[in-house]
Amino acid sequence: MTFSYVVEQTINGVTLGGLYALVALGYTLVYGILLMINFAHSELFMMGGYVGLGVLKVLADPAVADKAGMGFLKPIQAFFMSGGVGFVALMVATFLVSAVVVGFLGVIIERFAYRPLRHAPRLAPLISAIGVSIFLQNAVLLWISSKQLPYSRADGVQFVTATTAFSVAGVDVSTMQVFIIVTSLVLLALLDTFVSKTRTGRAMRATSQDAEAAGLMGVDINRVIALAFFIGPALGAVAGVFNGMYYGSVKFNMGFIPGIKSFTAAVIGGIGNLRGAMLGGFMLGIIESLAAGFISNAYRDVIAFIVLILVLVFRPGGLLGEAVAEKV
């Protein structure tokens, strides 16, 4: 095995890790504030992929504009397909629409499925979340498609070329990989700044430490929770769109495995801790990729979970989590 192979697998891992980190943040934000596992988060990731595909099809798939009554799309598509500025605008539109739509979906879910349960026993929101998850999957299955949809135009052309961007010393790095790694790092940095520097961010941190006390200090708890339920799914949606572009398809049950992995990543980093989720995401991605590359592709998930168990046995609070004292 050559050195370039190791680097290549590591880059695969960092890309995967970026996706995990984006999704893991959604779990960790919600857990930090509400102490609940938002089981439906993986489905929001999936929805992100679908909404993104829809936007791309409307803005840049000639087959859609050719349909009867859709002719007005032609000039719009001409702009978005013109490359350069058009391409950047297409990407911004896709990610923005997907993030906003799914973000609001997250807020709606919180409002109707979780808020009534805020004082219920701890398992009740978990079951509710599983219910939401089953509902969303089947809604997509019934109303969109039960098939695995290709993430490309109807004529098979990709929206973003996924070919090699550059090669250094035999290591090929694809456009998508650069795109994913850079975007996820930027988003993570933005979120980190938002939470640590702004007033709203402070309110979020306060709520996560002690919701009741924060409420007494004048923080609007409902607003903070709603915000967490907007940001998390919005980031998940970005990851969903990337996932579709990078791997090439969307399916109604695609969220499940990345969901479990991202949750694992959040736990490895210390659940409730934002930087922990990012660290855990990248760590898990790299470990998985190297495990698949050097040990066995079949056992990559096993190795990921063994790492999880080891981390928790030796550091029960996760890598960056504080050892929480039992509340008496």
């Binding site: 079949a298 998930d301 979970f305 999880l308």
Partner: peptide, 27 residues
């Protein structure tokens, strides 16, 4: 090894264990 973990950590570890068993059986 895992029972000293707190609630949700225990949940994720057991989840991981379940998957390990299934994948091992599958392979």
């Amino acid at each position: 090894p895992v029972l000293r973990l707190r609630g949700d950590y225990l949940a994720i570890v057991t989840l991981g264990f379940g998957e390990i068993v299934r994948i091992a059986l599958n392979n």
